[in-house]
Write a protein that binds this DNA or RNA. Structure first.
Lengths: 127, 127
DNA sequence: CGGCATCCCGTTGGATACTG
DNA sequence: CAGTATCCAACGGGATGCCG
């Protein structure tokens, strides 16, 4: 095993683990998931607040994403039986760890976004 | 100040950046992307070797993923004009940094996979 | 306000077959 | 071996409308 380097776990992914990972990664790596988790990173938010923060998201995808996250134990849903009704979403402990794992990717995307876009444009229709 | 306004680091998404990020994240957070980058982390691989490592991937998705990664400057494609032809794919410097940003997520997925699956099953059919 | 149901279309992505 | 091309099924995801 590599000692000098961060030893990559079972990167020699056994076909089975590979698929299990793919499943979780597909769910967790989803763009809406990433952005919703990012939005909730600062603290609990109401349904509409999340939607406002993520801006591009539709009601459908917001609901579906939140439901999946709740199912997966990433967020908690708290209903205040007031009128008008109020619902808060908040990251669980697990959600906090996910956010931590997502942060490097987030930062990477922000940092190299320009380089990537330039690569794309430069490679295709360069005069 | 808890969540008054955007007072958290720069990972706080301004609506515009948010969409730019969404684009990059959607591409980079894609499950096949993550797994291909993970496969290439150890060193250059041939087309078929990548496919074998990622196992579940189809030729179509492998080709598309590799092409996008090449376009984005994440991997390099090296053709050896031998017969039979041989093509090596390798992470660029940018790709290495991406891999670094992806690792935490990878580890997180591996670590909490069980918990997530259990959450899913436990929450729905508690038989 | 929060959220489900429905329609409906575009994209994703697998399976298959063919080429250099 | 390393792709490319086509077909087609499934899913994603926006728009709209209704209910608690």
């Amino acid at each position: 095993m590599s000692e000098t380097n961060i030893s990559v776990p079972k990167e020699t992914l056994s076909p089975t683990d590979c698929k299990g990972l793919a499943d979780v990664l597909a769910s967790v790596g989803d763009k809406w998931t990433i952005m919703v988790v990012g939005a909730l990173a600062k603290g609990p938010l109401r349904y509409n607040e999340v939607q406002r923060r993520v801006s591009g998201i539709s009601q459908r995808m917001l609901t579906l994403t939140l439901k999946r996250l709740e199912l997966d134990g990433i967020v908690t849903r708290t209903l205040f039986p007031s009128v008008p009704p109020r619902v808060d979403y908040e990251l669980t402990e697990l959600g906090q760890t996910l956010r931590g794992a997502l942060l490097p990717l987030h930062l990477w995307a922000a940092k190299h976004r320009d380089a990537i876009v330039r690569n794309r444009e430069g490679a295709s229709g360069e005069s």
